[in-house]
Amino acid sequence: MERDLVQLPKLPVGDIIVAFVDWIEQYFGWLLDGISAVLGFLIGGLQDLLLAVPAPILTLIAAALVWVVTRRDIKLAGLTALGLLLIWDLHLWNLAMLTLALVLVSTIVALAISIPLGIAAAGNDTINAALRPILDFMQTMPPFVYLIPAVIFFGLGNVPGTIATVVFAMPPALRLTNLGIRQVPIELIEVADAFGSTPQQKLFKVQLPVALPTIMAGVNQCIMLALSMTVIASMIGAGGLGYQVLVGIQRVNIGMGFEAGLAIVIIAIILDRITQSLMPRYYERQ
């Protein structure tokens, strides 16, 4: 064995982190409990709501929704119905509804944080400079690493899974909101100012609407990332289709893993098409 020439004293990074975590739990335990309770309530409530509707009826509602938002794309509405019926047929309906609830709650929380931060970053170079390294850090960190603090602070289950998903899904929405607002043509900003807008009017009547296509691309990315996190989050006890895939892997049950994976893809396609259709079209010629 090769021996090190110099024995560097090992820095107590691990000990410091443990002390930090203890400190947080001691003084912010109430906050963690609060977050946990709210998220747990949202996820459970949304799941119950989705399951309260019989599967065929929800399928019809989903198909109708797609039909409306895609401006009467009958083909896509039909495929949506077929996809959801397949999930039902595979006996994955309950798991799929839990996954959907997890994804929607994660996305809503992620957007509730990232869009205001993106707006702030667009309006203030200091905030932007401070956020950039944090975002780089969040995006280069392998998503598995998010699981550790989530488990430490929130234990096992759906809530820590959602927390890890929120952290993972946030950066693109934040960056694209920031970018979209910064890319609003200077002449349009001048229009807002020249006609006497207040800063709020400028933001809501000019900057956000003009940046909306870019912001919506961020929303779409956010949802897709949240879905892609479902399998990873299942390793800390998040339920749903992701957990089914994980069990399939652990038991080398190819059929079971594949069926659950297919269900995830179906949900992903439906959510993607709906958010893409919601993107504003005022730049397109008819």
Binding site: P185, L188, K205, V206, P209, V210, Y282, Y283
Partner: peptide, 8 residues
């Protein structure tokens, strides 16, 4: 110069 109409 470039009209600067609000596209939305």
């Amino acid at each position: 110069q470039n009209f600067a109409l609000l596209p939305h």
